[in-house]
Amino acid sequence: MAELLSLGEAIERFVKNGDTVALEGFTHLIPTAAAHELIRQDKKDLTLVRMTPDLVYDLLIGAGCAKKLIFSWGGNPGVGSLHRLRDAVEKQWPQSLEIEEHSHADLANAYVAGASGLPFAVLRAYLGSDLPKVNPMIKFIDCPFTGEKLAAVPSVRPDVTVIHAQKADRKGNVLIAGILGVQKEAALAARRCIVTVEEIVDELNAPMNACVLPNWALSAVCLVPGGAHPSYAHGYYERDNRFYQAWDPIARSRESFTAWIDEFIHGTADFGAFQAKLAAQQEAQ
Rank of each mutant, 00 (worst) to 15 (best):
D159G: 08
T161R: 02
Q166E: 12
P154R: 04
R124Y: 10
M137G: 09
I138A: 00
T161C: 06
L131W: 06
A125S: 14
M137F: 11
R124K: 14
V162F: 06
F145M: 10
Y126A: 00
A165K: 05
P158M: 01
K149Q: 13
P132T: 04
L150V: 09
S129G: 09
K149E: 14
S129A: 14
V153Y: 00
D142W: 11
T146H: 13
H164G: 08
R157S: 09
L127N: 13
I141W: 00
G128D: 04
F145I: 09
D130F: 15
F145D: 10
P144T: 07
K133F: 11
C143E: 10
Y126G: 01
P136A: 15
R157Y: 04
S129P: 05
Q166V: 09
G147F: 12
S155V: 03
I141R: 07
V156C: 06
A151Q: 02
P144H: 11
I163P: 00
F140Y: 10
K149G: 08
P136N: 14
F140V: 02
L131Q: 13
K167N: 06
P144S: 11
A151D: 00
P144L: 12
A151V: 04
V153K: 02
D159W: 03
K167A: 14
G128C: 02
I141A: 09
P136R: 13
V153Q: 03
C143Q: 04
Y126D: 01
G128M: 02
C143F: 04
T161H: 00
Y126W: 10
Y126P: 00
A165S: 12
R124D: 14
C143M: 06
L123E: 01
V162H: 04
I141M: 08
K149A: 08
P158Q: 06
I163F: 04
G128L: 01
S129N: 10
M137N: 13
E148Q: 14
F145Y: 11
A151N: 03
V160R: 00
K149H: 07
Q166A: 08
S155K: 01
A151Y: 00
T161Y: 01
S155H: 01
L123P: 05
A165Y: 03
C143G: 10
V134C: 11
G147H: 09
V153D: 02
G147T: 11
T146Q: 10
P154K: 04
T146G: 10
N135D: 07
S129L: 13
G147P: 03
V134F: 12
P154Y: 01
S155A: 13
P144W: 10
L131M: 15
F145A: 11
T146K: 12
E148K: 15
P158C: 06
I163S: 02
K133E: 14
K149W: 04
T161N: 04
S129F: 09
P158I: 05
I138N: 01
Y126L: 04
G128I: 02
V162I: 15
V156N: 04
P158G: 07
P154D: 05
K167Q: 11
L150F: 02
Q166H: 07
K167F: 03
E148T: 14
D142M: 11
I141V: 13
K139A: 12
A151G: 02
L131D: 06
K133C: 12
A151F: 01
T146M: 07
K167H: 03
N135L: 06
R124H: 10
F145W: 11
F140G: 03
Q166P: 03
G147L: 07
P158E: 00
M137R: 15
P136S: 14
V134N: 08
